[in-house]
Design a protein around this nucleic acid. Structure first.
Lengths: 113, 113
DNA sequence: CCGCATCCTTTAGGATACTG
DNA sequence: CAGTATCCTAAAGGATGCGG
């Protein structure tokens, strides 16, 4: 089924595996952002509310990184007080799909925890 | 660490996701160990050879952690010079399966990078 | 309200040397 | 051979305060 020579950067094929994905996913808050945005756009404060424990600095960093990677889009409105809304991109929804895949796997393989 | 414990109740579900799995998978060397052991048992030096760049300290730490988690088993032989062999457990093979799942996902979703 | 500027702590990981 | 024992650096993440 799966012979050897299948190990990303150790001289095998160029297939990207978990920790070599060009997307953050293992860091502390990205998965939470993906979950928080799965039902639609949210603004900064809304995200904070759904992610207890995150500090504004770290949340902002996470969002900037995700924006750079193309998993999240950001829209700022020139109002006062300011309003900024975040939303998953198509690629972001795909990454969320991977997360769901992992959850499914966990459901089937970790039942006896 | 895990921040404020298991806070994966984001959607109300208690499902464990990527970074909350009770297995290392996003750290630097675990996936490499899983790959290196996928074709059978290996000893410490053999693993080092298949994982260029890893230092004995870090490899030992990784193996200890995996042993604790139950993804790798360790057998030491009372010989001289000493010999120690590592092998995937059933659970280890399951985690490797998740890794393969991620690779499949990447193949289908990252073709046009 | 959004989020940057500072400063600080923790930790993963590496370099090197040394033992049973 | 199969690891410890030390020491060190970089980077992630947190606390707090300010500014448009």
């Amino acid at each position: 089924m799966r012979g050897s020579g299948y190990r990303n950067d150790i001289g095998g094929e160029q297939v990207k595996c978990a920790h070599d994905l060009p997307y953050q996913i293992g860091d502390k808050w990205t998965a939470h952002v993906l979950r928080a945005l799965q039902d639609g756009r949210r603004r900064f404060t809304g995200l904070r509310a759904e992610m207890p424990g995150v500090t504004p600095k770290v949340l902002a960093e996470t969002l900037r990184a995700m924006e750079r990677e193309g998993t999240v889009s950001r829209e700022a409105f020139a109002e006062n007080p300011p309003r900024v809304e975040y939303e998953l991109t198509e690629q972001g929804r795909r990454v969320l799909g991977l997360l769901d895949l992992c959850c499914d796997w966990a459901r089937e393989n970790l039942v006896e925890t």
